[in-house]
Design a protein around this nucleic acid. Structure first.
Lengths: 195, 195
DNA sequence: CCAAGTATACCGACTAGTGAATATACAAGC
DNA sequence: GCTTGTATATTCACTAGTCGGTATACTTGG
């Protein structure tokens, strides 16, 4: 039985992460991942029982790093909750200009696996999005915003919309518009002010 | 040279539409499309020069029907612009409960082809989303809403977010939340009222 | 006779996954 | 201090099937 946290396993997940994100799940072969990781396909299948398992491991491994990235942008921004929320979108628009940016890996995987609703990778994506929404609601709540859970969900919807629009139009203006709308929604629910 | 609008061509596009939407681009073989259309692969390749061309034809063919669907829901709804906008989301949440619903074909295709930014199918998707945004801005403008273009874009972002969230969570509540937020944004920009 | 359209049959490349053997390391028996 | 046993980890070679695309030949209507 393979070790749960072996360095080899990590090498495989790292290689899979790069390839799956860059090319998409269906366009990456197990052979290509094995080659990128510097080992044979048989070894890969020693550590993962199927490609589907590896896809799920790829997204599970992105949960915490992605949350930390968002939280970092939020914490670093000056100003109130509205500014901090908008900062996430501003940073998103910045990184989305990079040619290697290919949208949100969680959403893209869910789109590609739409015909397999119970797929472990889709569920990993669902967990990640829920984690983000909960984190955001807690941050908003701590800043005295009214109806923080509803607001967090609206911001998540705008963010996922921004990911999708950017992917189809390749125009960062959509992310800017989403950030502006999100900041407006936050201000509308900040005590002492109204839109 | 094949006829631009032959019945055979239509049969191929119809078969491709059903399969591509149900399974995703990468999971459908040209053989499967030919079989579903009741002809051989060689005939398919007489009418389309490549699979990529057929993918683009699939999305081009969905542009007008999708717009008509949205416009139909909008027109049929009673009340002001806010109600009409929310009606689109309400209807979307209803059809999204059907087991055959697999999200927005334009967004899913863009996600699957993220590594090929200039792909004709992605561009067809971009055109469709732009058409929808323009139609919505015109409807909002005709009803005296202020800043109709910005508002239309925000609603489109919420809608694309709703498509994505529904696909990853399989929970129509997200579409409801998006519809509620969209209606609120419309009311905030309707003369004589404020959020 | 000719051209449009369709069919059969095939190509080379690639696909996920596996069988059987082997290398490595470490523990137990003596 | 050996040797034997066992679990982990890795490799090569392979299967059975699918992929997008095509060479060639046939049919049919004008």
């Amino acid at each position: 039985m393979p070790e749960a946290s072996s360095p080899t396993r990590k090498r495989i997940v790292d290689a899979a992460t790069k390839l799956f994100y860059a090319e998409g799940i269906g366009r990456v072969s197990v052979d290509a991942i094995a080659e990128k990781a510097g080992l044979t396909k048989r070894t890969l299948y020693y550590h993962f029982k199927s490609k589907d398992d590896l896809i799920a491991a790829y997204l599970d491994g992105r949960d915490q790093p992605n949350l930390k990235q968002m939280a970092g942008w939020f914490d670093a921004a000056e100003g109130g909750a509205d500014r901090k929320v908008e900062a996430i979108f501003t940073n998103l628009a910045r990184v989305a200009r990079h040619p290697k940016w290919k949208g949100c890996g969680f959403l893209r995987t869910a789109a590609e696996l739409a015909s397999m609703p119970g797929h472990p990778a889709v569920m990993a994506g669902s967990r990640h999005k829920t984690n983000f929404e909960k984190w955001l609601a807690a941050e908003l709540s701590a800043r005295g915003v009214t109806a923080p859970h509803m607001l967090a969900r609206e911001i998540v919807l705008l963010m996922d919309g921004a990911f999708s629009s950017m992917l189809i139009h390749h125009n960062p203006d959509y992310i800017g518009a989403a950030g502006h709308a999100a900041a407006t929604l936050v201000r509308a629910r900040t005590s002492g002010s109204q839109v």
